[in-house]
């Protein structure tokens, strides 16, 4: 486990997909961290972790982009990434990408400070949440990178499990890939289409009204299928939410392990972060 001292501030790495397609997921994650009493630093010079090029075999192109990213986090504080995929790239593939390079030490140093967003909430902050809002049936889609690369498959369950009024339904073939895979969806569109159609069906069959995920690649893929099937076949369309958006809407932060500026117990009504 982490040997972090009280993390009173973190870097936030928003990811390129959130930047341009799902900024609300990023804004929600930042707000949630703030409500947990954390100061968030967002280096404006961030662009993309380099994974698209890395996974396409263009390693030099990926490395030059990654080199710019690793220079953005000079302070020795956690780097929170609201994506298992980009987090996995930075934590596990930067060390490979910079092996034997002059920046190897810096890449390793950055890799060691990467936390996927839900991992940070659960393992580092040990956040306690209280649910709010109406009774809702949800399904959780964990990205393959969160599950297998970052090893944080159970974190969304642990967060959502704290919220009364939220019932989690399990879709069949839950651990199977949704078929996004970055450029895979473009290079092998037929296989990807078959995978996402099955995934969307499985989630729809649970009866859940909301699908929650921690990766916007999967979300773009699955919600795109939901919407298409809704438009063309009038099938029911569950909403798709990044876990940060969902938690911001449906929960209050009660406290964290560090209790930084957060009320100690749920009966303390004052919300210190609004000060």
């Amino acid at each position: 486990m982490t040997t972090l001292l009280q993390p009173d501030s973190v870097y936030f790495y928003g990811t390129c997909l959130i930047d341009s397609v799902y900024p609300n997921a990023g804004v929600s994650a930042v707000e949630l961290l703030q409500r947990a009493g954390i100061r968030v630093i967002y280096p404006q010079a961030q662009t993309c972790c380099g994974q698209p090029a890395w996974n396409s075999g263009y390693r030099d192109e990926a490395r030059e982009v990654a080199r710019k990213q690793i220079a953005l986090f000079p302070k020795d504080i956690p780097i929170v990434v609201p994506s298992g995929s980009c987090g996995g790239m930075m934590k596990h593939h930067y060390p490979e990408l910079f092996k034997g390079e002059p920046d190897e030490a810096m890449a390793l140093q950055v890799a060691g400070r990467i936390y996927e967003f839900t991992e940070f909430l659960v393992d580092v902050l040990e956040i306690k949440l209280a649910g709010k809002g109406v009774k809702t049936d949800v399904a959780i889609h964990t990205s393959c990178s969160a599950r297998r690369e970052m090893g944080v498959a159970d974190k969304i369950e642990q967060l959502v499990g704290q919220l009364e009024n939220i019932t989690v339904h399990e879709q069949h073939h839950k651990k199977e890939c949704c078929g996004f895979g970055g450029t895979f969806a473009i290079k092998e569109p037929e296989i990807s289409a078959s995978m996402v159609t099955d995934k969307a069906d499985a989630i729809r069959e649970t009866g859940a009204s909301v699908m929650i995920t921690q990766d916007c690649g999967c979300m773009m893929n699955i919600s795109g299928a939901f919407e298409y099937e809704n438009q063309h076949h009038a099938l029911r369309m569950p909403q798709s939410k990044h876990i940060a958006e969902f938690l911001l809407e449906r929960s209050e932060v009660l406290c964290t392990k560090y209790d930084i500026n957060v009320p100690e117990t749920s009966d303390t009504t004052e919300d210190a972060t609004h000060g």
């Binding site: 804004v27 930042v30 280096p43 569109p189 037929e190 773009m220």
Partner: peptide, 30 residues
């Protein structure tokens, strides 16, 4: 090949304001 994406999915929605812009407007530290 974008056509193949949209054969079973709608096209990705592009946000009006990027995360960069929104967080800058909110005064989040750089």
């Amino acid at each position: 090949k974008m056509g193949a994406w949209t054969r079973v999915r709608t096209a990705p929605p592009i946000a009006a304001k990027t995360l960069h812009q929104q967080l800058k407007a909110k005064g989040i530290d750089n």
